[in-house]
């Protein structure tokens, strides 16, 4: 069993937590996510042009790049994380250009060496899969695909073809961190997706309160929280670990309690 499937096989839905690599004290923040109870960690790779992100993550990208974060630094963070936390799955999330600039094979092999379990690439849809998909699959790295409110039933099989690890349901048509989806639309979407796939379904975009997390946890296999954590890093700078841990723990508590019947 992979680390990702183990994380989704627990007795409670998974809490998937996102931070941007190189923004603040990433090592301390990663540890804080684990300490707070994150079941899966998404580590964002900063990019100059994060087209799918709202202001919070855009600014985190800029802070990270201004601090001089390089791709090699991100793999070093991942390698060290894997030594400290042998069981917590780590997923790299980012944009096509930094992931493919040295070729898909290079990226997949670095992921493999660093103990990265999965990759989410925002702007490589299934139609451009050859760019990165085959390399990741050869290296045994999960390619986590996104389904969105615009992904209809006819398109869904295309999205699922070649996907592994889990399916990330982007609950709003929009950028990260701004809007919140109506819970009924999430319930319907998850039910619809479940008909097509056995992959665990994690729901994200706009989730920030424990109440929202609990509502999603009642229907989905995972809850993704990003901008709200990134905002804590923005607020607390290099001493964000405590607040991040406490916030994540508050989400985790309700997610565990929300175990669906």
């Amino acid at each position: 069993m992979t680390r990702i499937s183990a994380a989704f096989s627990k007795s409670h839905p998974a809490l998937v937590a996102f931070i941007t690599a190189g923004d603040g004290d990433t090592t301390a923040n990663l540890d804080a996510l684990v300490a707070g109870g994150a079941d899966v960690i998404e580590l964002g790779m900063p990019f100059t042009d994060p087209m799918a992100d709202g202001p919070a993550i855009q600014e985190a990208n800029i802070r990270s790049l201004n601090a001089g974060t390089k791709t090699t630094d991100i793999f070093a963070l991942a390698t060290a994380f894997r030594k400290r936390h042998p069981d917590t799955p780590l997923v790299l999330m980012g944009y096509a250009n930094p992931m493919t600039i040295r070729g898909g094979d290079w990226f997949a092999s670095e992921c493999n060496k660093a103990g990265v379990d999965g990759v989410i690439c925002v702007d490589i849809p299934p139609e451009e899969d050859p760019e990165l998909g085959p390399a990741l699959r050869n290296a045994g790295i999960d390619l986590i695909r996104l389904a969105t409110p615009t992904t209809d039933a006819t398109r869904l099989p295309t999205v699922l073809n070649g996907a592994s690890g889990f399916l990330y349901y982007v609950s709003v048509a929009g950028i990260t961190g701004l809007q919140v989806a109506a819970q009924t639309s999430i319930d319907e979407a998850v039910a619809r997706l479940k008909v097509h796939t056995d992959l665990p379904i994690a729901v994200g975009f706009g989730v920030r309160t424990p109440e929202q997390a609990a509502n999603i946890a009642r229907v989905a296999d995972g809850v993704v929280v990003g901008s709200a954590i990134v905002e804590l890093v923005a607020e607390h700078g290099t001493s964000a670990a405590g607040p991040v841990r406490d916030y994540v723990a508050s989400l985790k508590q309700v997610i565990v309690a929300a175990r669906k019947v």
């Binding site: 799918a52 849809p125 760019e131 615009t150 992904t151 398109r155 982007v170």
Partner: peptide, 12 residues
């Protein structure tokens, strides 16, 4: 060329 867009835009 190609279509390197987020899934939300792909159907569009």
């Amino acid at each position: 060329g190609g279509r390197y867009v987020a899934e939300t835009l792909m159907p569009l």
